[in-house]
Design a protein around this nucleic acid. Structure first.
Lengths: 251, 251
DNA sequence: ATTGTTTCCGTATGACCTACGGAAATGGGG
DNA sequence: CCCCATTTCCGTAGGTCATACGGAAACAAT
């Protein structure tokens, strides 16, 4: 299915929820059995355990011991709930502004990666029209501040920001995809590749793919560590080179 | 919903389909009304027009003028159909090996971006456990060959490959997300941001976000071109810097 | 106790994927 | 020409999901 994203609901309502703008006290009427925070936390719990696909309104309601439709009193719909989940986990980053601008960018990348690791369903959330809540905004401010301290001109800061943010989220998403699939299908990444051994036996053509063959023979794929570690260090390398390039471009 | 990906079906069956391994001639029996190619093309047409979310088995069957269940004779299920769609559009890249290694990497990025532009639903397809078909494999070979020609050691080629591939797919996906949303919701990116004007009025805090405020006042966001163009040039910049870094790391 | 307000939630609708099993088409053997 | 094994087609049905609707239930003020 398509990636989850904000519905076309009322933006003002969604923003009020994101910033926990209390909708004005209600002195009369039945007491709420659940709160927005409880719903969001329950949804995160379910998604962490069973993936975003399993995070249905019915499943979240069950988790809380209420009827499905009760949720709609507090949250406009599923799309908005995902926005709330997203901004909530982004807040877990707790970014501390220490060290050089490079160290802070890497800190940002590490913390963001940690969020994806803890909440693999983040891979399925589009970050192009993100929920404009405190979790996202604080992160943007942190990353922009780091890049601005690098000495880049203001106009280049915004450009570099898009590139770095794209790299970080893309890398974190890629890295975590593997685990998410493992959780959803009960099949690990290694076993997935193992099951596709047939490919190398039946379809791989040495003449069609000379470079891959050469690299294989040169032992380039004989990494001692696991697939996940290899991907991880590749993205560390990539971010490093990206920052090298940005730094070098100023001189 | 969660990103689409391969189901747990028989890998050998899926690989045979990807490489169009004919399942042996069937001299007897009813003549097929549709072929695998027709199904894949119809599915791509539907997804291009209405998004991956609208690409239901029923919708594809309707497009072909056959019953829904007929598709299951030729294709194991929806997940495998998406694998076939993905590899098919990746084949459209037609990568031509000309120029320096850098030019070839940028060529790869451009062609891949073009695929995402033409088929925005690609954003919703996970590329971590990709369909091992000719479209994907030819691309990997091309990119690996370019990086190998750069003079990197074999072991670094594979590391750089993951980083560049991640960046390219991530960038292409980000860039296209906007259009896909516009198509799905009938709301353009600009109008989406416009509707969230409330955010700047009601929730943006100048003291909490000093860097953003400074950058705004410095005119860093006053780009003449559209949002899409800004994102596009940001990723060009990012890839350039990434390659600068890779190149510089060799010396 | 009545009334206004708010929350809770059972039911129903419509969309989706796909298992099942029978109907329909096809070509070869008698 | 008829029969029948083989293959494809597809109607039906069961399971899942989001969510619109409307009434029941809880609560505070009167």
């Amino acid at each position: 299915m398509a990636a989850e994203r904000s519905g076309g609901g009322d933006p003002a309502r969604t923003l009020a929820l994101l910033w926990r703008d209390p909708p004005e006290p209600k002195p009369v009427g039945r007491k709420p059995k659940v709160s927005v925070d409880q719903i969001v936390n329950a949804a995160i719990t379910v998604a962490d355990r069973e993936g975003l696909g399993a995070m249905s309104m019915a499943r979240v309601a069950q988790e809380l011991g209420v009827g499905t439709m009760s949720l709609y009193t507090h949250v406009p719909g599923k799309a908005e709930l995902i926005d709330l989940m997203t901004d909530t986990v982004l807040q877990e980053r707790e970014l501390t502004p220490e060290g050089t601008w490079r160290e802070r960018v890497k800190h940002y990348a590490d913390r963001t990666r940690a969020v994806y690791q803890a909440h693999p369903w983040m891979r399925d959330v589009s970050m192009v029209r993100p929920p404009l809540g405190p979790g996202l905004m604080d992160g943007q401010e942190f990353l922009l501040a780091a890049l601005a301290d690098s000495g880049l001109e203001p106009r280049h800061v915004t450009v570099a920001h898009v590139a770095v943010e794209g790299f970080v989220h893309g890398a974190a998403a890629s890295e975590v995809d593997d685990q998410q699939l493992a959780a959803a299908t009960g099949e690990s990444g290694d076993s997935w590749w193992g099951a596709r051994q047939v490919f190398w036996d039946d379809y791989f053509d040495v003449e069609r793919y000379p470079t891959m063959t050469t690299l294989w023979n040169a032992g380039a794929y004989e990494v001692g560590d696991s697939l996940a570690d290899h991907v991880h260090s590749s993205f560390d390398y990539g971010l490093d080179k990206l920052l090298d390039g940005i730094e070098g471009g100023m001189r």
